[in-house]
Design a binder for these strands. Structure first.
Lengths: 116, 116
DNA sequence: CAAATAAGGCACGTATAGGTATCTTACGCA
DNA sequence: TGCGTAAGATACCTATACGTGCCTTATTTG
């Protein structure tokens, strides 16, 4: 498998690098898992409350980017006040098992590993 | 499975958050995979060349942290000039399959996902 | 008429991750 | 006598990820 080298002559196609550049930020994975654990669609403020310590600015930015990438979908109900519901797309769901496996690994090993 | 909430009353134990805080930086995963793909121990400069665009400062810092966390081991041969070899530990190796699965997912999906 | 409500937008400030450039050590070799 | 070599250390600088605080909109309710 071709995994990552930037200086690999043939490519600027480096899966490992790409995926960690994309989801390695502070909130993306958390938002995806929160959506997965909620009973399907979650509204903006529900997400904010469940995650707890995410700022409004970062939650907005994270949701926007996830949507642009086709990992979540955004449904706007033009009521007053507005209602917006977020759901994982099929592509988003397809990523989750891998994240959970990492979480399992972490459960078993992170206690011994230095906290950030 | 308890995955992540910081405001979960019982814990400051949030596997997903922990593991991404730890390996979500720019170089950690790359170093681990480079070690895995090399024929076992790799020397400092070999790592630097294979990765290609890592700075000396960041490679040193990344290796040091990986070693502190028991994910790689460092063998110093006190010759002149010095020789240092890095290897994955058992714990380090146990993390790799999960990283490869993420890479596979990325191979299939990242082309459609916006690049950083 | 004022307040509340949901989902943000926007300006500003800071902390830190990461890059660059220079220095060190101890020896063999020309 | 001075250069090359491997593995870093250290000081300095910058870019950006992230946080904070205030503003907006359109309607309903007291």
């Amino acid at each position: 498998m071709k995994v990552f080298f930037k200086n690999d002559s043939s490519v600027d196609f480096c899966p490992v690098r790409d995926v960690f550049d994309r989801i390695g930020d502070k909130w993306t994975v958390l938002v995806m898992i929160t959506l997965d654990q909620g009973e399907s669609p979650l509204r903006y403020h529900e997400l904010q409350e469940r995650i707890g310590d995410v700022s409004q600015k970062m939650l907005t930015a994270t949701l926007k980017r996830l949507q642009e990438d086709g990992l979540i979908s955004r449904q706007l109900y033009p009521e007053i006040p507005p209602r917006v519901e977020y759901t994982l797309t099929a592509r988003g769901k397809s990523l989750l098992p891998h994240l959970y496996r990492l979480a399992e690994w972490a459960s078993e090993h992170m206690r011994d590993v230095k906290k950030v």
